[in-house]
């Protein structure tokens, strides 16, 4: 019930934002802008869905932006070297999975704090992309399929949006109906009790980091396709913050054990609408960040504070 409540208050935030955006810019509700908005939101949304899974399990993944850059760089260089489509798609995705395995192993097997582990891999992954390309962007002439990922449409709906929605549905199904989803919630809510109850905690954690990295990899492919280049240094910078913000606006508790993929969807839309509106209004990038922070704070207070305060009271009054 609590979950549904917080989603509702996110929806209110989103609705208010949409109304304000429409009033502020006459251009906002044009087909062209909405399609563009959805395109941009899908990218952050796909990453936020993976981040949401990690955060529900009680972790965090700061390396998603670097995975986006690494995947783009690999794909661009493979495409430029003339490899067939399968290789151009699968090798970068495999690299993303390896990145997820590295994150997961550091956290689940070696016991590093998720924040520390993924802060380290954030620099390592970006660094390896830069080393691989000698620090230079790689311009690529992508095969049609990859270009379609970024620019194509299904009956007017942008391809990335379709992909995003498919990912939301799959994740919803996994988290809600599969045993692994159940265990992700249990581990996030009380890792020790889950362990005593026979849950293989390390496997669950490993799964969440690999899942998150895989989605970041897909986002990386979309981004590089859109830009027509692999940008080892520039792509995906600060994406982790947008993704985390989307998750938090979506009502997922950073301490884990609670949250839903629909929240992440709404959260991503809030972030997307905000960036879009700032661009329409021509707000300078530095002011964009400042005001984005303010709006995120407001959204978190509206969406997250209710349950949070409730939890404090529940704890105080709990008779265990």
């Amino acid at each position: 019930m609590k979950e549904r409540l917080s989603i509702n208050s996110n929806l209110v935030v989103l609705a208010v934002l949409l109304v304000v955006a429409g009033l502020a810019s006459p251009y906002f509700w044009t087909i062209e802008n909405i399609v563009n908005l959805i395109r941009v939101t899908s990218l952050i949304g796909i990453i936020a869905v993976g981040m949401n899974v990690v955060i529900i399990s009680g972790g965090i993944d700061l390396s998603v932006g670097s995975v986006v850059a690494l995947v783009g760089t690999l794909a661009a260089s493979l495409a430029t070297a003339g490899y067939p489509l399968g290789i151009v798609v699968l090798v970068p995705i495999a690299a993303a999975l390896v990145a997820g395995l590295v994150n997961g192993s550091l956290v689940a097997l070696l016991g590093f704090q998720p924040f520390v582990a993924t802060l380290v891999t954030m620099t390592v992954f970006r660094g390896s992309g830069l080393v691989y390309s000698a620090g230079q962007p790689i311009y690529a002439d992508y095969p049609a399929f990859i270009a379609f990922l970024a620019r194509g449409t299904f009956g007017g709906v942008p391809a990335p949006a379709v992909l995003f929605f498919a990912i939301v549905l799959v994740t919803w199904y996994v988290m809600r109906f599969r045993a692994i989803g159940r265990m992700i919630y249990m581990v996030g809510a009380n890792e020790k009790a889950a362990y005593y109850g026979g849950v293989s905690v390390w496997r669950v954690k490993l799964f969440t980091y690999v899942y998150c990295a895989a989605l970041a990899g897909i986002a990386g492919l979309i981004l590089t396709a859109r830009m027509g280049s692999g940008e080892p240094g520039q792509a995906g910078v600060l994406y982790e913050l947008d993704a985390i913000a989307a998750v938090v606006i979506g009502g997922t508790a950073l301490q884990g054990g609670r949250g839903s993929v629909w929240g992440a969807l709404v959260g991503a839309l809030v972030i997307g609408v905000m960036s879009n509106l700032f661009n329409l209004l021509g707000v300078a990038p530095e002011w964009q960040n400042v005001s984005k922070g303010a709006v995120i704070l407001a959204a978190v207070i509206m969406a997250g504070a209710g349950p949070f305060i409730g939890a404090i009271f529940a704890r105080r009054a709990s008779n265990g």
Partner: peptide, 29 residues
């Protein structure tokens, strides 16, 4: 409180925690 139960989760989830595999169907729990 700390080892035995996951207090924020439903009774159902807590009871079937150790036997979850038995409730797994081909598509869903």
């Amino acid at each position: 409180k700390s080892d035995g139960l996951i207090l924020s989760m439903p009774i159902r989830h807590n009871v079937t925690l150790s036997s979850l595999a038995r409730y797994a169907g081909p598509l869903a729990l």
